[in-house]
Each structure stands twice: as structure tokens, then as C-alpha cells.
Design a protein around this nucleic acid. Structure first.
Length: 1038
RNA sequence: GCCGAAGUGGCGGAAUUGGUAGACGCGCUGGACUCAAAAUCCAGUGACAGCAAUGUCGUGUGGGUUCGAUUCCCACCUUCGGUACCA
């Protein structure tokens, strides 16, 4: 029996499908286990070999858990709303739903090819109205709730309204953005519009002014991704910040719980740190600074260093701060306006990261220092952001590096307030030293001073203690078509009303033109009938962001078809939460924070049973591309070649002069003249006819005969420099005034291999990405290249061994770099089992690594060897003989290693363990059923197809191998009688000594000391002590 | 800039809690089988010196702790991810 992966893999994929082997029930007596992959955006490019790495790992884990007796949920679906489909629609007119559906078909086909154990009956698609109905439903719940900071949970907005009706705004404990107060009577007398405006400051989704990247020239709002260096990526047009009314998600309400919840989940510490830093909890004080000549204005700042308040010599507001307008004096207005124009052109990233660039403008206003009473100037600068803290800071140039740079640049005073003389290496931001120049704080250390300053500030009514978060409320509006429509209607007053839950889903209207409308308004404003369902009323025309649908999809998998709820209580109670979540670290603070927020909200309103969605999480690395390069010869190369290969190697008998040319002359003078002859030579492309004509005139004027050697001639004769020699010799002493060498009418470029670039100056070549699918072991298959459009006329200069070798580099896997490898191709050649195992064999799942086909033959060879234990080409080899002790040891070593490796997600080492196991069994020619049957189950999670084939057709078992149970190892087979100890002298290994496993330390020490070579190793020193680590090593210290 | 991760032979990587650095695989070299090729099998393969035994060096760089450091500590360099509208 031959091992034919392509036949058996298709066969068993069909069998699994027909017998619904991977269908998962919500009703089982087995313990549950939920394994989840971060779901993909179905891009038009399809899956490349990087995508399935995590999926293969979870598939292995899923099958392993199943073999261990769990009811395992392992679903897959599509994050199907997104910008690429919309851009494609704008370019081609193809509706995003259409292109997305087509892309999903492609993804699905590619995934099926790999043999995953997904329960496809649970597939979800965020752009399906039956799905986004529930995204909209959750949005409406958020809209109808506020966050009670005392109970620390979300509560219905109606509770808050009752409170307003009885007590007004006093005693409200809620996350809010409300600025002001009102009584119960005032509340009752408010108009609907006024009430709506107040409530917006409390809802968990609410409207506020946000800033977008506005590109006037393109007439559209751009994603940060589409902006490069302050201009649009497409077209390079200027991009400005533009204020727009936007929906926001009040993530800050959950900041504290998002932080605390991290203690309860099993995530990589680095990821928790990233989330903690992103949330950025800091304790400090809000302090009010009165403004001179503005009795009703007090600038609110937040500081984590109230101890340095005496060092505050100026204030800085964000240029967008509401009060900049009012504070600016006439004399300063022009400067402020100019500066604001400049800031509008700057991205937030640039503003924060370009720390060396100092800029700002003076408003003309002065604030009163709340303690010293000094007047300090109020400036604006881009390094203060509107959404961070209060959008205003007290600047302490002695203890903050950006304030310091600002003060130095604008020659503002600096008062040292921390004496760091006891800590000579301390930097400005280190919290060490004692206070000085600070009135009542003098002499205190920083911790004492912070406490004292806080007390003072509170007692004197200058401000209050406050906990602040770096985390900001998430912008929830997109001026796009391809996203969930908001189920919101505005009445003629502009009051936002929720669409009735019975009317969900609110479907996207059909559109033909997906471009944004005037002023960057969302494309949906063009769907007039949809937009105005009732006279005078208007729908929200923005759509939700990508993270809306992806913030709760893992819940839908539990009960994907339910029309009554996003998932039934029964399903939620059974599956609870995700036990293992695998995905890229690029989602560390985006998706993972948003889904935790949504989940906590759903927990608060009693819809999910757990406060955290993802119990354990593993970050997978990215698969990088491995690009190959060929080198295109440029004009300089042909001259270099002529000098080296023809003049130097073959024509030592003649003298030539290389005409020196300035750049200006290069087009008007020939390259070489030959001494003792009136011949001059020009090397150039025959296509440069103007240039040749000019040089011909010059040569004639100088009384010279001109020989033009076409680049194309050299290119075609690159391995035959004698041909070029012959051309020159033929013309040396003739009388023909002008000769041009023969050339092909349809010449191509000359490309040289990497090896050749060593022999010439690198400026003779440009490196070009070449399709990696045309190479094997970095050797280019010339036939494949010549068969392509791009290289059909190309000349390739081969190495002396007849090969064309390319250089390589690790880059991002992308179409433009021609380094994308499609899993289908790999599977076509090697089979899915081999592909799966090779992806795992490449390295640890958590690490990023380059895709490189060079090692896959080893895995293919392994699978053939594995198969050859069971069957030869003409017969089954299996025997029922009793296994010998060494065979059992080999098997149980593998079981132990593989089990431990799977549990810690170390699949590359388990593949190695399989290789070792098979190599050793092969050496013993072991074909015993008692060894090979457990081995089949052991390898089944990794190579499901070949295992199923062996299980059913060679081992002749009934039913799928995935209903078997995973073998367990027996320690008794693993024990060694003898242990080899390395003998080290001062930590350096010198010899190996063998001892019985149970040997005592004294005997080992004596044996070591009396080693015949000991004297030589000691080099005259005496033994100080001997360290023996039982079972590990012996170290003699001299 | 800030936050996080990674750096070990020609290449991907291994090394359990601080204990034999380079498992396993690719590639390369030599050999067997074959008319030949493919496939398969055997041996070798970190660098340097040496016929060899063996010795010296060696885990991004520089320091430190330790009997012993790829592993722990300090400083730095390079690459990758994120940086709030790519997903």
C-alpha cells in the first residue's frame, strides 16, 4: 500500500463531512471546552500560509481535548465588515456584500483543504443581517443604560431618570461627561431636547464632537492607516483634523474593572502589561487655576505630581481646548490662529511622538498660581491633547522633559523644586529627592510631598484628589457604508430615538455609489428613502466601526441560529466563556479591550454568566514573507563587464582610455577611445537613438570612427565575452566610420544572480523582488520566469554551475513583494497533513517567523517513514507480536513528550518528538500493533487524514479515530538503569561518566576525583569542592 | 517618542527550575544501491588550530552575580507588533 496523501485526504474530508464528525452539541454529559480562533477578515487576496498557523494549532488542541474526553466547541466565522471591501466597491462598483460573499467562499474552500475540525454549522458572518441584528440590539442596550459608579455596574437609564425626577442632578453616582447641575423641578421643566442633551452625558453610548482625518481633495474621511506623513496615501493630498458629531462608547466607565479583571485571566504577562498601560490608571489631583481678567474662568488641570506645583511656571492648553478662543488676547490672536492651522495638519501620532520638535503659541492670558498667587502665562501647544486628562496642564519645566524643552525653547522660567543632589544619576522623571523652593513642602521627600500637597489642595478648595485613566472613550462612528447601521432616528428637534427592537435588524439600504457624500458625510445620506422613513425625521447615517461586530461574536457561536436572542440562556450557561483563545498580539489593546468591555456590560445586565470572556489566551506570532531577489543590470554594468571580461581578460594587447565625463556630458560623449587607433566605443542601449546620433556627430567631428556596442548585444552574449572581443577586433582597423553591434529587436532586461553581484560594484544593479513560487532552495526556475509576462524577454546570466541563485530577505508577506505563498499550492504538492505538521515544525506558535519552504521535505519524508512502519508498497506489515522493552520506551517517551508539549502549546517540539520516535522504531523495524495503535492516536491531532486512513483501513477499527481515547504514558517504561553524568572542572565539560541510576553522591564524588585525567585538568590546583546535581551533572571546583 | 516581543551554526529552531549549547529538520560534503535518474539508506557537518588525541573561542553588544548563565541583573544595539478609523 502506497501513501498517497492527495487521495486519502480528499476521501476522509468527505467522510468527516458526511458523517458530521465535527458537529458539536450544546447538550452533553461531557465536560465542555471552548477553543476559539480570532476570526479573519475575508480579504480578496485569500488565505496565505500565515493565516492558518493559529488555526492549525487550535485544531490540534481541539482534537487533543476531544480525544481526552471533552465536548469541544471550535467554531469559525468572518469579521466581514471592513474598509477593503468598501474601497473595492468604490473602485469597481461591486457591492461589498457581493465581493465579501465571494471572498468567504474562497476562504472556506482554502480552509476545507487543510482538514480543520470546525463545526461549520455554527459559522457566523458579522455582515449578515441576522447577525448584526444582535449587534444593533446590544448597541440599544448600551444606549439605554448608564454606569453607576457606586454599585459599580450598568443600570437602566430609567433609574437615572427617576433620580433626576426626584433629586435632580445632586447625589448622582454615574460615569458622565455632564458639566453643570439642575434640580428636580428644573429637570421636569426641561424640553425633550434639553433632556436628551443631559442624558447623552450619561448613556454608555453617546454623542460628542470627535476629530477625523479629513481630506478635502478626496472629499472623504480617512483611516489613520490611509494617512502617511500628514498626507493621504492615495494621491498625497493634505489631510486636516475636522470636528464632527460622533457616537462614542463610554469605555472609561469600565476602566477600573477592565484593569482588575486582568488578574483573573490566564493571559501572557506582556499582554496584560500592554492593557494595563493602555488603560493607564494614575492617581493625582485635579486643580483649578483662576485666570487673570476672567473672573468666571478656572482652568482645570490634572496632575500626578502635585508635589511639584511650586515649579509650575506656565500653563499649556491643547490647541482644541474650548477656552482658547476666549482666553486669546487681540494682540496674540493672529499667532494663535496660525498655530491652530498648523496643528490641524498634524496627526495625533506625530504630535505625541516627535518629542524633539517644540512648538506652541502664547494666548496672551495669565493664570494665577493657586498657592503662590504668581501670574503665569497660558500657552497652547500640540503636545497637550484635548482628550487626555482635561486637555490642559500646569507645566513644570524642572521635572517634566517636554515642559522643560518647551520652557527652554520659549525662554520661560524654570524653578528647580526637587533637590536630587543625593542621587547623582537620577533623571528628571525619577521620583527621588527632596523638595525645595516649595514653601511648606520644603525638605519632604516626594511621597510625603505628594500627600501633603494633596491635603493642602483639598483643604483650601483648590481641587480634589482624583484617579485618572489614559484610556479614552472609543469613537464609535464611521462615515462609511460597509458597517452596521445605527438603529437611531432623530426627530425634527434632533433628539435621538432608539428604533424599536421589533424592527431590528435595521438593514443597510442598497446603494450603487459608495463614495462619501458632500462634506465627508456618510454614503448612507444618499439613500434618501431609507434616510427619512418619517417626514421630518432622519436616520443616523454613520455606521458602526469594525470592532462592533467582533466584540461579541464568540457568544453567537454558542447558539448561532437563535432568532429570539443573541444566544439562549441554556447555551450560554453550558458554554460559559472561551477556555482558550488564540490570536495575534496586534489585537492586544484594540479588540481584546473592546470585547471585554462589551462582555462586562452584558454581564451587568444579566445576559452572560461570566465577567470575563476569555479565560486563557495565547498570542500567535506572524508568519513573515521570505522574499527572493534578482538583480537587474543597469547601464553601468555593461561598461563594467566590458572592462573586466573583455578588455582586461581578453584584450590585454590593446590600450584603452575611459573618457571621463561629467554628468552633463554623459549623454554627449563616447565611453572609450582605443590608443593607436581612431576607434572610439560607446556602450548603450540601441533604443537610445537620439543619444547615439549625437555621439556619432561628435565622433565624426573629432575624426573618430564610432563603434556602438548595444547593451542588448552584451546581454544576449553574456556568457561569451569572446563574441564582444571579436566585434571590437573586427572594427579596430577598418575604415567604416560607424558601426552598431547586432541586437535582438525584442530585447529584455539582463538579470544576474546574487553570486555575480559580488564581482561587481553593487551600484551596477537594482534588486527586484521575484515571485517566490518560481524558486526552490533559492534557485530560480528560469523556465517558470520566462513563461511569465513580465520576464518573457528577459536574459538570465547563470552561474558557472548552470544555476541562477537568488538572495533573500525577510519582509512582510504581501502581494507587492511577490512573496505570498498560498496554502493550496503547498497542499497540492505535499498534502494537508504535511502542510499542517510543517507549519507547526517551523517554530513556536507564539513567535513570528519567516515562511520558508526549504524545510518541508523533511516533514514529507517523515510522513512517508511513519507510513512505512505500517505498510510497504505491497503489503500491510502490522504484527500482533508482544512489544519489547526498548519499543515501549520509545512509545512512552513520545506519549509523555507530546502530551506535555500539546498542553503547553509547544507543537514544534512535538513534531520533533514524533520524528525521533519514528526514526527509532524504524531502526528496530517495529511494526507491532501494540506500539503502532497508540502512536496513531497520538499523531491524529497533527495529521488527521493519514491517521484516520491507518486507523480504519490498516488497523481495521470501526468508526473515526477521533472517538478513540488519547494514550496515557506509563512512567515505568521510561526509567533508565544507568545515567551519563557530564564531568565538569570549574564549569567546563571534560568527560562523561556513567553511574547506576540510584548511585549515591559519595561514590560519584570519589569516582570523579579519581578520574585518570583529573590531575591534568586541575593544572596544579587542588579540589575545593565537588558539586553533584543528582541525575544531572558533576562539577569539580578547583 | 511611548508600550510590548524577539535576537543561538549557512537556514528554521532545541535546551523542563541556573546544570552536557546546537536536539529535530533543511542545506551542504562523502559513500551505498542503480545502466542512469528519482526515491531510499549510511557517515560527516558551529568556528579556529591540529594527521590525530585534543585545545581555544562561541547563544546581538558591553558589564555584573554564580562552582556553573542562552537562562538572573544593569546598560546599549538591531528587527518586528501596537500607538485609539487596517483588521
Amino acid at each position: 500500500m502506497e501513501y498517497s496523501p492527495n487521495i486519502i485526504e480528499k476521501h476522509w474530508q468527505k467522510y468527516w463531512k458526511e458523517n458530521q464528525i465535527y458537529k458539536v452539541s450544546n447538550d452533553s454529559t461531557k465536560p465542555k471546552y471552548y477553543v476559539l480562533d480570532m476570526f479573519p477578515y475575508p480579504s480578496g487576496a485569500g488565505l496565505h500560509v500565515g493565516h492558518p498557523m493559529g488555526y492549525i494549532a487550535t485544531d490540534i488542541f481541539t482534537r487533543f481535548k476531544r480525544l481526552k474526553g471533552f465536548n469541544v466547541l471550535h467554531p469559525m466565522g468572518y469579521d466581514a465588515f471592513g474598509l477593503p471591501a468598501e474601497q473595492y466597491a468604490i473602485q469597481t462598483g461591486v457591492h461589498p456584500a457581493e465581493s465579501t460573499a465571494a471572498n468567504i467562499v474562497g476562504f472556506r474552500r482554502q480552509m476545507d483543504n487543510i482538514g480543520f475540525s470546525y463545526d461549520w454549522s455554527r459559522e457566523v458572518n458579522t455582515s449578515d443581517p441576522a447577525y448584526y441584528k444582535w449587534t444593533q440590539w446590544i448597541f440599544l442596550q448600551l444606549f439605554d443604560h448608564y454606569y453607576d459608579t457606586k454599585l459599580d455596574k450598568a443600570r437602566p437609564l430609567s433609574d437615572l431618570i427617576s433620580h433626576f425626577e426626584t433629586q435632580g442632578s445632586s447625589n448622582v453616582t454615574a460615569s458622565n461627561s455632564f458639566d453643570g447641575s439642575f434640580t428636580a423641578e428644573e429637570w421636569t421643566s426641561f424640553s425633550a431636547k434639553e433632556k436628551d442633551e443631559v442624558l447623552m452625558n450619561y448613556r454608555l453610548v453617546y454623542r460628542k464632537v470627535g476629530y477625523v482625518n479629513w481630506c478635502e481633495a478626496l472629499g472623504t474621511v480617512l483611516a489613520n492607516d490611509e494617512v502617511k506623513d500628514g498626507v493621504s496615501e492615495r494621491g498625497g493630498y493634505p489631510v486636516m483634523k475636522k470636528a464632527m458629531m460622533q457616537w462614542s462608547l463610554r469605555t472609561t466607565a469600565y476602566a477600573e474593572r477592565l484593569l482588575k479583571g486582568l488578574d483573573d485571566v490566564e493571559w501572557p504577562e506582556s499582554l496584560k502589561i500592554m492593557q494595563r498601560n493602555w488603560i493607564g490608571r494614575s492617581e493625582g489631583a485635579r486643580v483649578f487655576f483662576q485666570v487673570k481678567d476672567h473672573p468666571n474662568l478656572a482652568i482645570e488641570i490634572f496632575t500626578t505630581r502635585p508635589d511639584t506645583i511650586f515649579g509650575a511656571t506656565f500653563m499649556v492648553l491643547a490647541p482644541e481646548h474650548d477656552w482658547v478662543e476666549r482666553l486669546t488676547t487681540e494682540a496674540c490672536r493672529e499667532g494663535i490662529e496660525q498655530y491652530k492651522d498648523y496643528v490641524q495638519s498634524r496627526s495625533e501620532r506625530e504630535r505625541v511622538s516627535e518629542v524633539k520638535k517644540v512648538s506652541g503659541a502664547f494666548t496672551g492670558a495669565y493664570a494665577i498660581h493657586p498657592i503662590s498667587g504668581n501670574e503665569i502665562p497660558v500657552w497652547i501647544s500640540e503636545y497637550v491633547l484635548k482628550d487626555y486628562g482635561t486637555g490642559a496642564i500646569m507645566a513644570v519645566p524642572s521635572d517634566d522633559s517636554r515642559d522643560n524643552a518647551f520652557a527652554k525653547h520659549f525662554k520661560l522660567p524654570i524653578i528647580e523644586v526637587i533637590d536630587r543632589s543625593a542621587f547623582p544619576n537620577a533623571t528628571m522623571e525619577d521620583k527621588v529627592g527632596h523638595l525645595m523652593n516649595s514653601d511648606f513642602l520644603n525638605g519632604k521627600n516626594i511621597v510625603e510631598a505628594i500627600a501633603a500637597a494633596l491635603d493642602y489642595i483639598e483643604h483650601n478648595g483648590l481641587g480634589t484628589r482624583q484617579v485618572n485613566f489614559r484610556l479614552r472613550d472609543a469613537n464609535f462612528s464611521r462615515q462609511r457604508y460597509w458597517g452596521e447601521p445605527f438603529p437611531i432616528l432623530y426627530d425634527p428637534e434632533g433628539v435621538a430615538h432608539a428604533v424599536d427592537v421589533e424592527d431590528l435588524p435595521l438593514e443597510l439600504p442598497k446603494l450603487d455609489d459608495f463614495k462619501p457624500s458632500v462634506d465627508g458625510k456618510a454614503p448612507l445620506t444618499k439613500a434618501l428613502e431609507w434616510l427619512h422613513p418619517i417626514d421630518g425625521w432622519v436616520r443616523e447615517a454613520d455606521t458602526m466601526p469594525g470592532f462592533a461586530g467582533s466584540s461579541w461574536y464568540f457568544l453567537r457561536y454558542m447558539d448561532p441560529e437563535n432568532p429570539e436572542a443573541f444566544a439562549s440562556k441554556q447555551a450560554l450557561d453550558y458554554w460559559q466563556d472561551v477556555d482558550l483563545y488564540v490570536g495575534g498580539a496586534e489585537h492586544a489593546v484594540g479588540h481584546l479591550l473592546y470585547s471585554r468591555t462589551w462582555h462586562k456590560f452584558l454581564f451587568d445586565i444579566g445576559k452572560v454568566p461570566t465577567p470575563e470572556p476569555f479565560r486563557k489566551l495565547i498570542n500567535q506570532g506572524m508568519i513573515q514573507g521570505r522574499s527572493n531577489f534578482i538583480y537587474r543590470a543597469n547601464d553601468k554594468f555593461f561598461m563594467a563587464y566590458l572592462e573586466k571580461k573583455v578588455f582586461a581578460d581578453l584584450m590585454g594587447d590593446i590600450d584603452y582610455v575611459k573618457e571621463t565625463k561629467s554628468d552633463f556630458e554623459s549623454a554627449t560623449n563616447y565611453d572609450y577611445s582605443i590608443k593607436g587607433s581612431n576607434l572610439v566605443i560607446e556602450v548603450t542601449s540601441f533604443k537610445q537613438s537620439d543619444k547615439i546620433a549625437r555621439i556619432r556627430e561628435i565622433a565624426a567631428a573629432n575624426g573618430k570612427r564610432l563603434l556602438v556596442i548595444a547593451n542588448e548585444t552584451i546581454s544576449r552574449n553574456i556568457n561569451n565575452p569572446k563574441h564582444i572581443e571579436a566585434i571590437i577586433r573586427e572594427n579596430l582597423h577598418s575604415s567604416v566610420p560607424f558601426v552598431i553591434s547586432e541586437y535582438d529587436k525584442e530585447p529584455g532586461q539582463l538579470y544576474v544572480s546574487h553570486n555575480l553581484t559580488y564581482k561587481y560594484d553593487e551600484s551596477n544593479f537594482s534588486a527586484i523582488n521575484i515571485d517566490v513560487n518560481w524558486l526552490e532552495n533559492d534557485v530560480l526556475d528560469i523556465e517558470k520566469a520566462l513563461a511569465s509576462n513580465m520576464y518573457k524577454n528577459a536574459d538570465f546570466k547563470l552561474d558557472p554551475n548552470g544555476k541562477f541563485t537568488c538572495s533573500w530577505e525577510i519582509e512582510k508577506m504581501s502581494k507587492s513583494k511577490y512573496n505570498v505563498v498560498n496554502p493550496d499550492h503547498v497542499i497540492g504538492e505535499y498534502g494537508a497533513d504535511c502542510f499542517r505538521m510543517y507549519e507547526m515544525f517551523l517554530g513556536p506558535v507564539e513567535q513570528s517567523k519567516p515562511w520558508d519552504m526549504n524545510g518541508i521535505d523533511g516533514v514529507a519524508k517523515f510522513l512517508r517513514r511513519f507510513w512505512s512502519l505500517y505498510a510497504s508498497p505491497d503489503s500491510v506489515l502490522l504484527t500482533n507480536d508482544a512489544p519489547a522493552k526498548p519499543e515501549l520506551k520509545i512509545l512512552h517517551t513520545a506519549i509523555k513528550k507530546v502530551t506535555e508539549d500539546i498542553e503547553k502549546f509547544s507543537f514544534n517540539t512535538s513534531v520533533s518528538a514524533f520524528m525521533i520516535c519514528v526514526n527509532e522504531l524504524k531502526k528496530l523495524n517495529c511494526s507491532k500493533r501494540e506500539i503502532l495503535e497508540p502512536l496513531t492516536i497520538l499523531i491524529a491531532p497533527f495529521a488527521p487524514h493519514v491517521s484516520e486512513e491507518i486507523w480504519q483501513n490498516i488497523l481495521n477499527n470501526e468508526g473515526t479515530v477521533f472517538d478513540a481515547s488519547f494514550p496515557s504514558f506509563d512512567e515505568q517504561y521510561l526509567k533508565d538503569d544507568e545515567i551519563d553524568y557530564p564531568l565538569c572542572i570549574n564549569g567546563k565539560k571534560r568527560a562523561i561518566m556513567s553511574f547506576p541510576a540510584e548511585e549515591n553522591n559519595a561514590n560519584i564524588e570519589n569516582a570523579a576525583k579519581s578520574h585518570p585525567d583529573m590531575e591534568k585538568w586541575l593544572e596544579g590546583k587542588s579540589i575545593k569542592k565537588v558539586i553533584i546535581v543528582p541525575g544531572k551533572m558533576i562539577n569539580v571546583v578547583a
